[in-house]
């Protein structure tokens, strides 16, 4: 269950794409001609607005205050990965479709590629790395290992965060709710059975 589901209906419909610039024009034709929707999404690339001035921003990530020097157009995902070396959130689609970049903002699952870094000042950002402290890990991580809910592992951290945020919101979720609630993420290797088993097991124990 992602916080931004409402606004992520495609390029041109969210604030980020507006700020990115030309996405909106392409998307308008996409509305008229469904066949070209795909082209719109693939042709809208980050950085379609001209370089602006980089400015210092302050972010609260995993409980720590950090600063980064970024232009307005830089996404939260890029700052986490490229500036802060928090590479647990992955860039896969960069178009808010796959969930590999999922982080928690103020406790809710959010696609980090759907937010500009400057929008996130003053918010409480938690990445997957916050769910592990040395040998101590969140039960979701333990459960993913127990049920082998991973293969290549590239979608896995995103799924872990999505599962944690979802179970925080719905600690006693049913199977149907899990199947809906984790529908914002994609795995190519086919690890859904293990993820479902893990989430079910934790939900049956009350979500922790």
């Amino acid at each position: 269950m992602h916080d931004h589901e409402e606004e992520s209906r495609g390029p041109g419909f969210n604030r980020r794409d507006f700020l990115r610039g030309s996405g909106a024009a392409v998307a308008a034709t996409a509305l008229v001609n469904g066949a070209h929707e795909g082209l719109a999404a693939q042709d809208v690339k980050k950085g379609v607005v001209a370089a602006g001035k980089a400015q210092d921003i302050k972010l609260k990530v995993n409980g720590k205050e950090v600063t980064a020097k970024v232009e307005n157009r830089v996404t939260l995902l890029d700052v986490l990965r490229d500036d802060l070396q928090l590479t647990g959130c992955k860039e896969v689609c960069d178009t808010t479709n796959c969930g590999a970049c999922t982080v928690m903002i103020d406790g809710k699952a959010v696609y980090a590629c759907s937010r500009l870094a400057i929008e996130c000042e003053g918010k409480d950002i938690k990445t997957v790395e916050s769910l592990r402290n040395g040998d101590t890990v969140d039960p979701v991580i333990t459960g993913f290992c127990k049920h082998d809910a991973m293969q290549c592992g590239f979608c896995t951290p995103g799924f872990v965060v999505a599962t944690r945020a979802f179970l925080n919101q719905k600690p006693n979720a049913s199977l149907e709710e899990i199947r809906k609630g984790l529908g914002g993420n994609i795995c190519r290797c086919g690890t859904y059975a293990g993820i479902t088993a893990c989430a079910m097991e934790i939900a049956q124990k009350g979500g922790a």
Binding site: E129, M150, F154
Partner: peptide
């Protein structure tokens, strides 16, 4: 498993 699931594994 823990390396991957916790995002510490470097691709």
């Amino acid at each position: 498993g823990v390396e991957k699931a916790s995002g510490f594994a470097k691709y």
